[in-house]
Amino acid sequence: MTFRRALRLITKTGRVAEPAPPPPEPLPARPAELAGSVQIRHVDCGSCNGCEIEIANAFGPVYDVERYGARLVASPRHADVVLATGVVTRNMLDPLRRTIDATPRPRLVIALGDCARNGGMFTGAYGVVGAVTDVVDVDLEIPGCPPEPEAIVSALRRVTGR
């Protein structure tokens, strides 16, 4: 993209972030250390990629969950929250547990989407161990198949408290 095209795009688009809805009730079990700043490591345990698209939307310019202090990071050691999506497949059971172990305390585990909460349409399927809630301790669940970006933003705001 040329400089001029990029400049025109920036000036024409302006601000696309939607106005912030009123803050939701903070999570009662939320560690006080995480106030205002939450780094998130996303683990795809066997998702169909629907939840991933909605996560990308929540972190995109329109919903912009980064404005509330949440940020996706590249390493579990930088993270405060493990965001698990999808049913847990046999191959991802160990990586999920190790990712959670590699996350420094205080940490939270969020199960995002119906598959992560109860197995959804993949319950009992071949190669599936169970839902995320079956194999690890989960602090917060986000229902939906896939959850809307508003629901993801609202859940993450309950953790950041902003």
Partner: peptide, 9 residues
């Protein structure tokens, strides 16, 4: 963030 159309943290 502002140039990307975001609100920013």
């Amino acid at each position: 963030s502002r140039l990307e159309g975001r609100a920013g943290a």
